[in-house]
Design a protein around this nucleic acid. Structure first.
Lengths: 157, 157
DNA sequence: TGAAAGTAGTTGATGCGTCACTCAATCGGG
DNA sequence: CCCGATTGAGTGACGCATCAACTACTTTCA
């Protein structure tokens, strides 16, 4: 991609482009591999898993839908669609909210608890094998700082 | 998420989990923001853009479909679907391959060239604003090394 | 030379994820 | 008390992405 002299914003250097493309590729392949591996050992998708993690991390085993959206960083429409699919598979159930007629709670079912209990060990092992084990603790910490900085920047944007 | 003493693979530490979840969130938000911004200033999706980058980076302006899949790191079925959509919008066109009756070439059209020429400056500016400008050159280089290492690991897996 | 294996690419089904739009309920101000 | 604004959530349309299955062609081997 040649440098366009009419631009005020310069193109990325060749090295920057290489790193950027590799990052995009890493993320795609990582997500795809994790999704395949979790699907191979359970009936869960990564999205299912994320929702169930949120619901099993709280003592009540339930959360408001908007709260789920915030914690997962998902659009509400996405949460709604995802929960509909998970509900049809018996992983979660809905409750009306007594204090707010507009909203509802979603809770994890026993089937959902079993599903994530089955899936979690393998998933964590995958994350370790594919990511964590290739980095020293200091590298992972430094990487975490970089991620935090970029996340702050994008949320401030 | 409690430690399961029966497991040989330990859970991630709280800090590792935090970094991991933030990484997933960063990727989602970054992809979504880049996709929104490129869609706001052109009729291209990020996937369209990726394909057009590949096709305009070569002097012939065309490539074998399997070659595209390799370079983009996409499944062939994905490439196929994507090219079908792009072809229906006049961004690319297909040619039979004289040497291999099984395969075909895909080439960028003039409309495709115009589309990516329009979209590229804004897209690069977005990548700079959201990512590159928040890191020093050394940080970006170190980051690139980490990405390379993880990519090698996942591709070797 | 022909059959088997491998390769290139396509298609349909389906889950995912965003966007625009909608509806119902709540809140706040006049 | 009423109305407009806001909020919580859901729905449909549609592009994206994977998977399984398929077709057509090429290569390999006996």
């Amino acid at each position: 991609m040649a440098y366009d002299v009419f631009m005020t914003t310069p193109w990325l250097t060749d090295e920057q482009q290489r790193i950027w493309r590799n990052w995009l590729r890493l993320n795609r392949e990582l997500q795809a591999t994790l999704a395949r591996e979790i699907a191979a050992t359970s009936d869960l998708s990564m999205a299912d898993f994320g929702v169930l993690v949120q619901l099993t991390d709280v003592p009540e085993g339930r959360a408001r839908i908007s709260e789920l959206a915030d914690n997962l960083g998902w659009e509400r429409s996405r949460v709604s669609h995802q929960l509909k699919r998970m509900q049809s598979r018996g992983l979660v159930e809905r409750f009306e909210c007594a204090e707010d007629g507009r909203g509802s709670f979603v809770g994890v079912t026993e089937a959902g608890r079993h599903a994530i209990a089955d899936a979690a060990p393998g998933h964590v092992a995958s994350v370790r094998r594919l990511v964590v084990d290739h980095l020293t603790a200091d590298e992972f910490t430094d990487f975490g700082r970089l991620v935090d900085r970029l996340l702050e920047a994008i949320d401030a944007d």
